[in-house]
Design a protein around this nucleic acid. Structure first.
Lengths: 252, 252
DNA sequence: ACTTGACCCTGACGTTGCGTGAGGACCTAA
DNA sequence: TTAGGTCCTCACGCAACGTCAGGGTCAAGT
């Protein structure tokens, strides 16, 4: 027996009514019901709900969400990659909007009137950019998008094995350097950090230095991740963290 | 006679139907009608529409927008300031969402399960943060908000005169330095750039170095702003631009 | 065993912000 | 003068829930 609808609503910050609605339209039907007809949500249901919440926050319609979540050719991780990409796009969009406001205020400050053309541009920045627009902006026509989708969703078991192997290799590389006494800001350690970043970019998502240092911080802050490295070698979490930071600074 | 409804719709990237709707609910009623009953939008109408579009993109309801736009104790510039602040908040929100996805992906990568507590946090990042939440997050209770509103919306004519005077003074300061042959990356020029930034922060909105360099770029890119400086002294636009950039780099 | 309060269920109607025609006037250019 | 594009006013439709209404369920306390 999983969580009750109220518990789910609280942890996911959605209303009970919304969950009823998702059930009614077949977007998220809890995998179990109690004898009295109470909905019971399993961990898998919760995971699906997270995808729903994220896609919703990006402005996707419930119909479309149903469609892509029920598309079993799409791996769960692929959803996270897409969401990441869409969020980055969203972030850039917000920055364009801020720039547009800046421009308008500067014009006010200077007592300047914007030309219709400039005005249209300002308006354009605030045009309701749906997720669909953003997706197309990123991947061009549906054709290219389909291709990209085909590529990333077609990871075979061998691919996944290779990804895991690469990841393990990077961990080992750090550990070897640590054992050899190489400083965290040595060239070798920074190269390993770069490999870590490229590995994520290759198999998961475009990992900027900013994002990577965020991950490094998390490796120390969250005991779960810390343990993962400490199990390989004592002090490795801190070492990886320092190497990533050193590398990020050096490349900036 | 102003613009036709079709023209407005095109430049503002909204549908004709939306404009009809705004008229019907009294949010934006064009200031004139032709003999045949055609709507005619004045420049003031367009300006109001921009405010509407921006607030809408922030998720505000049409009712609320009507209320705050019809509140005549709020200066037009105050709307831009608010919108700027809300957008910055929105930007931070998006970054929190990206971080949440990063964390989820890292957990996947490492084969780790998130605790309910962590899950709740991830969900929290995607909770539909309405503009209202964001406003309260920034300004606390309605009381504090009312105060801030009272403060910023109560600029007197004398205040405005002072703001304009300060702005002119900053321009003159740059011009004097340019005439005196001080380099754009000299300490004096960078101090002037800092004064430029502080002036905007004081009278308009919190101007970060990133935003300021954006403005500097605009001074060169947009002939309107360029002219404004060139009228004071030849080469001043470029000079101001360089000083702002030098200062931003020095302070980073 | 019984009550009480918190929680759950299923309808069912209301709301917001428009989309989408229907049916008809208007207006410029050929 | 006729065709196209644009404009007008109803008026119904729709998504994603909010909001009662009327009624079971359940654990805790008495």
């Amino acid at each position: 027996m999983g969580l009750s609808i109220g518990d789910v609503a609280r942890t996911a910050h959605v209303t009970v009514r919304a969950l009823h609605h998702y059930d009614a339209i077949g977007l998220l039907s809890p995998s179990e019901r109690s004898a009295a007809g109470y909905r019971s949500y399993s961990p898998a249901d919760i995971e699906r709900l997270q995808q729903i919440v994220v896609y919703r926050s990006l402005g996707m319609s419930l119909q479309d969400i149903t469609a892509i979540l029920d598309d079993h050719t799409v791996e769960p991780l692929e959803h996270l990659r897409r969401q990441h990409a869409l969020l980055v796009e969203r972030s850039e969009h917000v920055h364009r909007m801020i720039a547009a406001i800046d421009k308008t205020m500067e014009a006010h400050r200077m007592g300047i009137n914007l030309t219709p053309d400039e005005q249209s541009q300002v308006f354009g920045a605030f045009a309701p950019a749906s997720y669909a627009d953003e997706v197309e902006e990123r991947w061009g026509e549906t054709d290219a998008f389909a291709k990209s989708k085909a590529k990333t969703s077609s990871y075979t078991k061998a691919d996944w094995a290779e990804a895991v192997a690469e990841q393990t290799a990077v961990g080992e590389r750090f550990a070897a350097l640590l054992r050899a006494g190489a400083a965290a800001d040595s060239q070798d350690a920074m190269d390993a950090a770069e490999a870590h970043r490229r590995q994520i970019t290759r198999w998961y998502y475009d990992c900027s230095y900013e994002i990577q240092t965020g991950l490094a911080d998390m490796y120390l802050a969250d005991p779960r991740f810390t343990e993962n490295y400490e199990n390989i070698e004592a002090g490795l979490a801190q070492y990886v963290h320092d190497a990533i930071h050193a590398n990020a600074i050096a490349r900036a």
